[in-house]
Design a protein around this nucleic acid. Structure first.
Lengths: 325, 325
DNA sequence: CTCTAGAATCTAAGCGCTTAGAATGTAAGC
DNA sequence: GCTTACATTCTAAGCGCTTAGATTCTAGAG
């Protein structure tokens, strides 16, 4: 791999100055067609690939967004060769949002740089990524407030999470409370459940909001929130949890929904093909991704614009796992 | 968003030279603890975020890999707000390999820059990405040979696809032929099928290899490869196709495997929770991703090392959709 | 043929960082 | 006090690109 050719090499080969080479690529209309052809020919011949680092340094923008993400699964300890790990790697909420972000960014000419939210030192990773992009999406937010502010002072940042109400930061959220309320009410009013258990730890702001709604509705209805024996309904924190649970129950010979109701939250595509199909609350995951990119673009277009907070509605989606058909 | 502080600002604030600031971050042991603290304090106070562009330009490396990917689905035409699109966005092969690549890269301190293989002008996108990373993974290969060579001359490139036998390029493949052969033999020998249809267009080298194996085994067994009426088995090009088909058939009231056998290829986690579970050929998707990163790292460590071609075995995985239980 | 406006091209100054190699400080040995 | 050997810090030269502003061409007008 020889030293890569630079604008200088191309300029020399084409018999022009480096400025002309640069213009040939950035503003073709400003150079005479004949010259342009000479330059393009030389570039092709030499195998010229412009250095984005140099361009980024010169113009101060990189035309790329960063995405720090944390997928909620314990990082695999050993090597990755166990394909059977299967479900653990199941595409989750975060992957679907990522997909939306990628597509939206691409459509606007931005590339996406993905960083590891599970890294030992997220803050360092985040600063590192922040140094090479024009905007950053946190999925969900998990940086120290200190680092967060530091980064937010340099580039636009948007958190996709509940509870990021800092007036200086952009955020995207869904209506966790409303969604969970609708879901549990359905169980109470239609299926007349007499007990229910919440599955999964309420370890993030989003999960906490869901749990709070779950608890409140049950309280209102005078239904015990937990029981030692099997409850009539397992209300899971996420679809991923619900799908895992469905598998566990099946293995134990417990039927869903005949013996127990199971519900999820998120609206993963997987819930459509599971058996039974999953009653859940759908989030507009791609829309969240698209919106995140939009906020970033807005902020870039007008750096002085105030931070935005958008909350998206969710939709109760009745399928088979609650007993409806 | 004020102008971001640079090494110069930090140096001035800390009363040292820019070299000392740089060393404080890159080789802390080389600066006196007291000085180091002064610099770190100044950096924190100013909200210093180093510019990766500048660093990349100075050192000639960016500590990131590019990934151009093409997910085989028609790019959504309209806006992204139809969550119902569901299955179309289903995590496919490419997403699982991507996952492996991301994890492996992260573990080695590299970030991943993802680019759009579905872009109108993939070649331009690819060159653009190539200009800002230390290595590139093509998933699967879909660049013009011209661009491919041009990029490969500048940075290590690895294609994850069948038929990338160019001696100058690294490649990762699976044994499509063997896998499909095992699968179809199982259908012939165990289930005694009398007819079978291949589902999905053989539009890439991988799909062509699968189709060829399918055809060969049937021919050997003297079984017609297609029929006007419904065949006894639908052998799908991929799991994604098979899962779609499963849904279609269910909607039409056709039972699987009682009325017709359906098989996939890839080993997506979704095949574990579909009903019936999917008989398929599992690819070690994460391993492919990890291997791709490995080849890149090897090449970076020793740029003169010859290109490597690795082919991974696949594994016939019998589940319910073929009639086994 | 000269003049002038506009097109085409070029010169040169950065962008923010790394890192040889030079300069300076410091402490131990004589 | 003077060397010597390191430890510490600094100076300055890039890395490859963009882009004002200067310079040179070109062609139509007079």
């Amino acid at each position: 791999m020889a030293r890569s050719p630079t604008v200088y090499d191309v300029a020399q080969a084409a018999g022009v100055s480096i400025a002309t080479v640069s213009f040939t690529f950035s503003r073709p209309s400003r150079v005479k067609p004949a010259t342009r052809d000479k330059v393009l020919a030389a570039a092709r011949r030499l195998g010229y690939v412009p250095s984005a680092s140099a361009r980024g340094l010169a113009v101060g923008r990189t035309k790329s967004f960063g995405l720090i993400f944390w997928d909620g699964s314990t990082p695999p300890a050993g090597p990755f060769d166990d394909v059977n790990a299967g479900l653990r790697h199941f595409p989750r909420w975060v992957h679907e949002v990522q997909y939306g972000i990628e597509r939206a960014a691409w459509r606007n000419g931005y590339a996406i740089m993905v960083g590891d939210g599970d890294a030992i030192d997220v803050d360092t990773t985040a600063v590192d990524i922040a140094g090479r992009v024009d905007g950053l999406v946190l999925l969900p937010r998990m940086l120290s407030p200190d680092t967060l502010m530091r980064v937010a002072e340099r580039i636009p940042v948007v958190s996709v999470t509940e509870g990021a109400d800092d007036p200086h930061l952009n955020s995207i959220t869904v209506d966790n409370r409303q969604g969970m309320t609708d879901l549990v009410r359905h169980l109470v009013e239609v299926h007349r459940i007499g007990s229910a258990a919440f599955v999964g730890a309420a370890e993030t702001a989003d999960y906490r909001a869901r749990f709070a709604a779950f608890r409140d509705v049950l309280e209102q209805a005078g239904i015990p929130a937990a029981s030692d024996s099997m409850p009539e309904a397992y209300v899971c924190r996420t679809d991923a949890d619900a799908l895992d649970l469905l598998n566990d129950l099946r293995a134990k010979g417990i039927r869903v929904p005949e013996d127990v109701i199971v519900t999820g939250f998120d609206g993963l595509a997987a819930g459509l093909i599971s058996r039974p199909t999953l009653t859940t609350v759908r989030q507009p995951m791609h829309v969240l991704g698209v919106a995140a990119v939009e906020l970033l673009l807005n902020r870039i277009a007008d750096p002085e614009s105030p931070a935005e907070h958008r909350r998206f509605p969710v939709e109760l989606t009745i399928r088979h796992s609650c007993g409806c058909s």
